[in-house]
């Protein structure tokens, strides 16, 4: 009888822990996610976005990772990504990231800083959706932005 009481108490504690854990994990599950980003002009795959998501609490998430893009000359470009993800309403998961790299600039004839900004409007269930990006962002000039589709995919690279 005493053993039964102890077991019941343990079960109650376990249930409490599970409920608390579920509450803490509500929203996006932290981990590494990958997206295939299609080019805005329908010309195929622009690159792969591999981002690790960390839960800051209160619906705030930090993201860091890389964008890998095959180049026409056969090389692969890997750029660094950092940003944030928020559930802005029940139907929209928004992610804003900044992408940087030091790349060879043919006009300059030397390596130069490349900064690209991305903003994603994702379905919270499928975590896929459209994204918009600007190339070589400069804060004081108007940037040309265009969009594509980011599809959640298995991380295989």
């Amino acid at each position: 009888m005493k053993g039964l009481k102890v077991m019941a108490l343990l079960m109650a504690v376990l249930a409490g822990v599970l409920i608390l854990n579920t509450k803490a994990q509500a929203g996006i599950v932290p981990g590494t996610y990958c997206w295939q980003a299609d080019a805005h002009n329908g010309s195929g795959v622009l690159g792969y976005h591999r981002l690790s998501i960390k839960d800051f609490g209160n619906g705030h998430y930090s993201v860091v990772g890389t964008i890998t893009a095959p180049q026409t000359n056969g090389t692969v470009s890997v750029k660094l990504v950092n940003g944030a993800m928020e559930l802005t309403d029940a139907n929209t998961l928004e992610m804003g990231v900044s992408v940087t790299d030091a790349e060879y600039n043919t006009a300059l004839g030397a390596n130069a800083l490349t900064v690209v900004d991305f903003h994603y409007l994702l379905n919270p269930v499928t975590m896929s959706g459209p994204y918009y990006t600007s190339s070589n962002h400069n804060s004081v000039t108007t940037t040309k932005s265009y969009g594509g589709v980011a599809t959640l995919t298995t991380c295989t690279y």
Binding site: D117, H119, T143
Partner: peptide, 16 residues
């Protein structure tokens, strides 16, 4: 901080 948004009409707005 870097701030971004899509306010509509497929335009990315970025702010520092």
């Amino acid at each position: 901080l870097q701030v971004s948004d899509i306010p509509g009409t497929n335009t990315l707005v970025v702010e520092d």
